[in-house]
Write a protein that binds this DNA or RNA. Sequence first.
DNA 1: GTTTTATTGTGAATTTTTTCACAAACGCTT
DNA 2: AAGCGTTTGTGAAAAAATTCACAATAAAAC
Lengths: 210, 210
Amino acid sequence: MKRNGRPIIPKKTIYRLSIYLRCLARLRENGIGTVSSEALAKAAGVKSTQLRKDLAYFGTFGTRGLGYDVTELSQKISGELGTAQLQPVVLVGVGHLGLALLSYRGFEKEGFEIIAAFDTEPNRRRDKKIKQSILGIDALPAFVTEHAVKMAILSVPVVVAQETANTLIKHGVMGILNFAPIVLAVPEDVMVNNVNLAIELENLSYFIQG
Amino acid sequence: MKRNGRPIIPKKTIYRLSIYLRCLARLRENGIGTVSSEALAKAAGVKSTQLRKDLAYFGTFGTRGLGYDVTELSQKISGELGTAQLQPVVLVGVGHLGLALLSYRGFEKEGFEIIAAFDTEPNRRRDKKIKQSILGIDALPAFVTEHAVKMAILSVPVVVAQETANTLIKHGVMGILNFAPIVLAVPEDVMVNNVNLAIELENLSYFIQG
DNA sequence: GTTTTATTGTGAATTTTTTCACAAACGCTT
DNA sequence: AAGCGTTTGTGAAAAAATTCACAATAAAAC
């Protein structure tokens, strides 16, 4: 089964690739050059057969009897995920959460750069100092088009989330990381990942009461 | 298949229940009293058969030919998720992200209250003003025990994440919302939900390059 | 009170994901 | 260069999740 010339890989597999990548990074920091599927799987919290199946979706990189080369596997996964080169991202909605995300250091390290932020009130006084400039929402379409931005972080109030998403998509954004607690309606070639912290807590709440 | 007297319900089903709950809330705000599985499923972005299967795990609440009573179904789901009454939560690690989470309004509305925050440097100057008090890490064990806290948000640096988790668990915490990019090792009766924003972006990155 | 219409609840079929089991292949030792 | 000990890669089996298909049933219409 193929789509766009490459096999359809389960979304869960892609998530796990990211986890493997982080485990590999830690191994590399510790100067470890080679790792077995057993060891890497354990670090990632999965079964070794699953790790091998996951990797098998996009090639064979191991050496039988030995394992995987940490650096080589990192590069392969990184290339596959499309994070080998820095990706520009815009952030829309600079409220509490948006502001925190702007000062979050975790993105750059992983190959993403928030190159600009947008808000209906770009000049509102904000406690925190950040390096990115905050522009008005009306500057969004031109900016996204001009910089060929493909990914956006959406941290606007729920009432304007759909409308903002529409604008982003209209100007070429293909992937949205959505923090608004709403199911966005988007064309099927556009991808939305939802992050809803209340749902995560609710989920915990259910499982611990058992 | 049962555990603790109730059927084992897939984790994904529980996530969807939370989504249904939010859709139902919106319907109620709009004064809608009854909804069909078809309509609710569409709002939640799933198939109607899946919605019905999900609900069937914990009872039958609908009326054939008519649909579901919005208020009644909300209450049932809420009860099932354990969010019918306010739940106390502690937050550990008041950096950029932790601070933002403290000022995030989305939790209370959904039945959670961050009753205290902890940090190794509780008195460090922080730009934002928040209502919760920030205590030293050493105050954590006594506080968690005393207030019978069952859930925690972990936003500490990755190097101390495991250690902090251990402390929390030792003093009775059963559910952890973990923002540190590491797979925590925990006893099997403790539940961890990981939130890793870099992984979410990486995931988008993969799917949009196709 | 009977028919029509709508919609649920669910067993069966299908699809997807995970796990098993083992042959194939590689490095290392002798 | 042959044998040994590992560990991969993968077809097949099992398990889990989703979707289908439709009988059951309740309200509304007549």
